[in-house]
């Protein structure tokens, strides 16, 4: 798989962060401290975060700063989480969202 993490940058210093384990649709993956859910998925080569409930077209993030809501996913059973700004936490269960979302206690 292509390595998307930048290790040597002329201006910025990206130190190796702590490893944060999580799962994406049941598959174990690793992020780094400082990651959001979407950035960790991106580092793992995941581009499709969901399928639109109406058009069924694949969705990825667009703005990455919490404006556009193109990155909504199901996290630990809760729908409609803005994954581009939500920090990644150890053990998170991240899933592709394919509908408008359901209440998490149903």
């Amino acid at each position: 798989m292509e390595n998307r993490r930048i290790t040597d940058h002329p201006i910025l210093d990206f130190s190796e962060g702590e490893v944060i384990p999580f799962t994406f649709d049941g598959k174990p993956m690793e992020g780094r401290s400082g990651d959001t859910i979407a950035s960790a998925l991106h580092a793992n080569g995941v581009k499709v975060l969901g399928y639109h409930f109406k058009t069924k077209r694949p969705r990825g993030f667009y703005c990455a700063i919490g404006n556009c809501s193109s990155c909504l996913m199901v996290v630990n059973g809760q729908s409609n989480v803005r994954t581009c700004t939500e920090p990644l936490l150890p053990g998170m269960k991240v899933e592709t969202q394919i509908d408008r979302g359901v209440p998490d206690d149903v």
């Binding site: 499709v48 990825g60 703005c63 990455a64 581009c84």
Partner: peptide
Amino acid sequence: PGIYGAGA
């Protein structure tokens, strides 16, 4: 997916 804003 893969179409991003420049800020993103």
